[in-house]
Design a protein around this nucleic acid. Sequence first.
DNA 1: GATGAATGAGTTTTCATTCAT
DNA 2: TATGAATGAAAACTCATTCAT
Lengths: 197, 197, 197, 197
Amino acid sequence: MLNKKVLRKQQILQAALEVFGNSGFQTAGISDIARKAKIAEGTLYFYFKNKEDLFFSIPAQRIAEFCEGLELHLQGMNEAPGKLRKIIWFYLYFFKTNPVYARILMLEMSVSKRFSKAITFDRVKAFTDLVLGIIKEGQEEGFIRKDRDACLVRDILLAVLEYRVARWLLNEESCDLLENYSEICDFIFDGIKSKLT
Amino acid sequence: MLNKKVLRKQQILQAALEVFGNSGFQTAGISDIARKAKIAEGTLYFYFKNKEDLFFSIPAQRIAEFCEGLELHLQGMNEAPGKLRKIIWFYLYFFKTNPVYARILMLEMSVSKRFSKAITFDRVKAFTDLVLGIIKEGQEEGFIRKDRDACLVRDILLAVLEYRVARWLLNEESCDLLENYSEICDFIFDGIKSKLT
Amino acid sequence: MLNKKVLRKQQILQAALEVFGNSGFQTAGISDIARKAKIAEGTLYFYFKNKEDLFFSIPAQRIAEFCEGLELHLQGMNEAPGKLRKIIWFYLYFFKTNPVYARILMLEMSVSKRFSKAITFDRVKAFTDLVLGIIKEGQEEGFIRKDRDACLVRDILLAVLEYRVARWLLNEESCDLLENYSEICDFIFDGIKSKLT
Amino acid sequence: MLNKKVLRKQQILQAALEVFGNSGFQTAGISDIARKAKIAEGTLYFYFKNKEDLFFSIPAQRIAEFCEGLELHLQGMNEAPGKLRKIIWFYLYFFKTNPVYARILMLEMSVSKRFSKAITFDRVKAFTDLVLGIIKEGQEEGFIRKDRDACLVRDILLAVLEYRVARWLLNEESCDLLENYSEICDFIFDGIKSKLT
DNA sequence: GATGAATGAGTTTTCATTCAT
DNA sequence: TATGAATGAAAACTCATTCAT
């Protein structure tokens, strides 16, 4: 019973991802989503409060996948610089692999005030906190300059990543998102690594 | 006669700026804009082809103001690093001073594929080209590391600026956009300055 | 369930017939039709694609009625002249009995290029083919002159019928449409009957 | 002065003919007509009361041309049958030569109740009276059967002509309107000529 | 739980007509 | 006479949401 409900929810979310991803929040219609999910329109409202709720429910699962994947990739790494490089790589890799979700998250959600207040946003914050933690870790371990404000470093890192993904999407994914990954890393690290290193 | 037409157009654009800025493109209604501009709805269509045309017509003037202001501030400066610092400052200063416009440009337009194809977008490109030119200038003059890809440097610079403005807007402009301006500069410049300097 | 849908469709079509019949296609408003059908405007679009679709959906049923009625009246008749007389009579009788529909079909549809391309038009063609068939039949049986082009005869027959109905409608149905039915028949038959007869 | 006014009116009427002929009354816009006539929209209302007035003013001149042309062609003819043949030919010839006007008159005006009440309609009636007169003439002269109701004959004649023009227009003028002119004549005349002849 | 017909407010856009200049 | 900017009512159509079945 419960299992069935969860499954049905996934089914709807998957349909919503595809429809919203192709048409955007406003343009996408509930009927399109229902059709793609092979349910009646009314049924949708049994699982989600309304269109916006459905929309903002999409990331939850994806963010979880992102976090799990990232965690796995960070396994066994113990120095901050390496971890950060890994994060940069994984971030780009993940969105390269999930372009439809990328479109929703980057061009629609991250730009919405209401999203900042949605529950899902906590998961986003968890990720940014992870990055912040690693930066601080790096500072304590001596790999990263202590006179850098950790939050600023994190912001710059995220800024660059978001920007690249957004431009990639707006250019219709015509280039390889991972292309100049290493140059980005170099730039960031030159700006934060301790002179000694 | 002609003057009156131009004035009326300004009047409508100003109203559109305010209404779109508060409600967003989709939510804002033509009737709201007409009411604010104190004209009949039909009149609006005498000056603009449709809602989208009106929306995308907003930046033209603002971008012109931005460019003029920037040009003025760059007068008399002849070294790339100084110019770049100035650009960073002016960028943040401009949007701090024009928060409603910032909201439209950053959270709605720069995220839209159709905007990339609008005529106005040329002006945006002119700005990014300016930045790119100064970076290359700096590399030739020896202030900026030649092993950095100029486009990447430009992208990182713009990424950080856009990100900060966007976050500031999403946080309801609660902090000072110019607050850690100098730290941002430091970070960027540490990443690009020639070792010799 | 399915039955209810069909019924509802009938209900809307009936309302559309009346409203379009009184005001014409352009003047009639969707809201008028919805009001007369006692449904919400939106409901209408659940059953018909748009105003034109609704309009062109009106004849289907009426044409079916016409064909059934005609078939019944032709039962047991085996000679072409009698059949043609019957057709002439039934045609006039039918529109005399359905003046509102007549107005729509004659003064709006039969004059529209788009109607010629609508599906319903097939049914109209079926009728004209029936007439043509009977004329040819008459020629083979020797009742009708063989040197007359059957298509021309059909066209003249239809021309006269359409004309009379149209004039009758434009004169506000002030005379009896069946009035000089027999004279019309005589005229037509004098023009086509074999000399021998 | 007066001359200029008349000229300007012609200019507008010509533009109206073309625009209405291509788009139909409802679809055609005053602005299109004004543009084609190279005048301002407001000016149009100095010469015509409103859109409908302009529309119904189109035929006047054309009908005059039609009547003049017909009169000329009837010169020197003194027997009814020949005259009627000539009328049939001229009618088809005229509309073949004026297809845009034909479209307006046949598919839009002759189907409109308001047109029957317009002044211009008198000219139409003058024509039908002419036909009626000739038929009666023919009856008196003994060329045409006296037991035929003259009005009916006239109606049948006009019905066939209108029908052919209308079908021709609806078929996008793809065939030659004068094609089976002589067969039509034969049919009509067989139905009306005195046995003696 | 699931359905899908019904809703109706709300939207953009059009355009004949007017009138100050 | 001529202009063309301004009007504003009206129209068709959409769609998220509800609720009787």
